[in-house]
């Protein structure tokens, strides 16, 4: 019997840090950009799998979840290739355009549908949205504790866990009751390379797709219509570069530079 069910929430993101934006439509240019698992989510997956591997007395099941278009199945397969037991895709046209609020609503419904999830693990933020809000919002909706920036899980059983988290200037250790949600930072582990058995399993596995109907979600609480925020414009800030070459002997250069900086009120 499975005693600890762990849900890992992951997201497919463009695999580049050089995001190009179409200046006409203000949307991401996705052509020619490979999609990857959000890098922070890879640590979340690994931690879920490690909890299962080191748990000797209790049976653990790790379930990966993502909300996204049908091609997001690929990252769920990747999650299976590194040891996740099963995966569920939350996909529906109605989910499109979701902000963090609508996203956390959809995820919460899925987690309730899975039933008896004791732990939810997320990456600390995504590479594209960068908000870091989905984790805490999800915990709020499920009415369970949330620990952000977890850097180490010290102990865990069905009812309790001890978790260490990384703050700017210190570490904090908490003991919390389960169910709970945590977000993880990259210090927590080194994600493994896929295994051959995992890849074989991923190749043949059927990934169930849950739509709004199956989640019992009304249209106005998911996707764009369930969102309080909307991206109006994305743009790359224009940075003005002005280069002035200062010439002369080193001594003269220093003097000129000093004068210039003084005029600019930099010094």
């Amino acid at each position: 019997m499975i005693q600890i069910k762990i849900a890992v929430c992951i997201k497919q993101v463009p695999g580049t840090t050089e995001i190009k934006i179409d200046p006409e439509t203000n949307t991401l240019i996705r052509e020619g950009i490979e999609n990857i698992i959000n890098p922070f989510d890879a640590y979340a997956i690994e931690e879920g799998v490690r909890i299962r591997e080191r748990s000797s007395s209790e049976e653990v099941e790790v379930i990966a979840l993502t909300m996204g278009p049908p091609q997001s199945k690929e990252i769920l397969k990747e999650a299976i290739s590194v040891g996740v037991d099963r995966a569920i895709l939350l996909s529906d046209r109605a989910f499109a355009g979701a902000d963090t609020w609508a996203t956390s609503n959809t995820l919460a419904k899925a987690i309730n549908k899975i039933e008896d999830c004791r732990l939810i693990i997320l990456g600390k933020q995504t590479l594209d949205g960068d908000t870091g809000q989905v984790g805490p919002e999800l915990a709020q909706r499920l009415n369970i504790p949330f620990i952000g920036y977890a850097s180490s899980i010290l102990e865990i059983n069905r009812n309790k866990m001890k978790v260490k988290r990384l703050m700017e200037d210190r570490y904090e250790t908490f003991e919390i009751n389960l169910p709970a949600a945590i977000s993880v930072v990259k210090d927590i582990n080194t994600p493994r390379v896929p295994s051959l058995r995992g890849k074989m399993k991923a190749k043949s596995v059927e990934i169930p797709v849950w739509d709004a109907n199956q989640l019992g979600a009304d249209e106005d609480e998911v996707g764009l219509s369930g969102s309080y925020t909307q991206v109006v414009k994305i743009f790359t800030p224009k940075i003005k570069h002005e280069i002035k070459m200062i010439e002369g002997s080193p001594g003269e250069q220093v003097e000129k530079l000093y004068k210039e900086l003084k005029e600019l009120n930099v010094i």
Binding site: V193, L196, R197
Partner: peptide, 20 residues
């Protein structure tokens, strides 16, 4: 250990003995 976790040592062993 990473090589082991990736099942690569299983390539040496037939399936009936937990290999691949």
């Amino acid at each position: 250990n990473e090589i082991a976790r990736s099942d690569l040592f299983r390539l040496f062993v037939p399936e009936e003995y937990e290999g691949m």
